[in-house]
Write a protein that binds this DNA or RNA. Sequence first.
DNA 1: GTACCGGTACTCGGATATAGTATGTCCGAGTATGCGTGG
DNA 2: CCACGCATACTCGGACATACTATATCCGAGTACCGGTAC
Lengths: 155, 155
Amino acid sequence: MKVSQAVEWGLHCAILLAQVPGDSPLRREVLARHYDLPEAYLSKTLQAMTRAGVLQATPGPRGGYRLAGPAERLTALEVVEAVEGTAEPFTCQEIRQRGLAAATPEECKRPCTVNSLMFQAHQAWRETLRTVTIADLVSRVPHSIRARNRRLLAG
Amino acid sequence: MKVSQAVEWGLHCAILLAQVPGDSPLRREVLARHYDLPEAYLSKTLQAMTRAGVLQATPGPRGGYRLAGPAERLTALEVVEAVEGTAEPFTCQEIRQRGLAAATPEECKRPCTVNSLMFQAHQAWRETLRTVTIADLVSRVPHSIRARNRRLLAG
DNA sequence: GTACCGGTACTCGGATATAGTATGTCCGAGTATGCGTGG
DNA sequence: CCACGCATACTCGGACATACTATATCCGAGTACCGGTAC
């Protein structure tokens, strides 16, 4: 089990976009330079976030990315799932229905206990991310860094 | 993010081993046939569980695998981490220290907020798995299946 | 002076290579057993 | 009859291929702007 590094990028970008004064968009190149990320690949992540409705992309001159909604209403979970997708990390192969001890369809009306447990664990994970918004994360960034960002994003 | 299918195999095998009457070990081939799994690959999973101390392996005739301890003391988390490893699924790249807005070492004494959040989410996931033992999972298996297993494992 | 039109430069979006990891398979190392042999 | 030693068959363990996904990159599609031109 491994979380894509693109998740880190996506969250940091969302946090940064939430600090942009006014409503001016940020170009992809600016985001990439800000954290020294490969711009071409970052493109893929921002794309996914846009498709998921987390970001709003504007093409053409004076274009770029901005948050699709207020940071107070955008949860970390939405960002993470925008990047990683919403597929369950554990997919039950229903091996209980195979082999010598194959369970009958009758016995499988209730979901597999292993499947239930893993699902429950994933729900706990999601719940943790759902209770935190991007605005919360911004407020946890040290003031000195926020000040520096304000200066960089203004110019 | 994706959980290896080997986790499903490992948990099911642990649950099955907990149902073995007496203390006789189960051969790899028996486990594989029970769920119609590729024996050669299942080997890798059982190996990992043995290395982690979840299973005890006995070579030679009349050998096989058995649980290293009582099912009541073996948590699902231990099994999962035995198979998947204990590495954090989210590894912070510390991108806040790079690029134009690079944070100073002084500002990085506290861990990155993104890192903290993802860590916290993972802890919630682990906690869910830690509160459930293999014995619990056995008790959730339908009686008809348990009876069938008892019969199969006796012969 | 104003409105329209076309060219241009800039932005994102998706199709295309590469690398690393999960998946799948094989053969060799080690051990308890069972038989044969000697006392 | 009993004890010892050896060959054997059986078990797991780790080294070796393959397939898929995450990573990384490029070039093309679309859009707003800006200048020129006609009215």
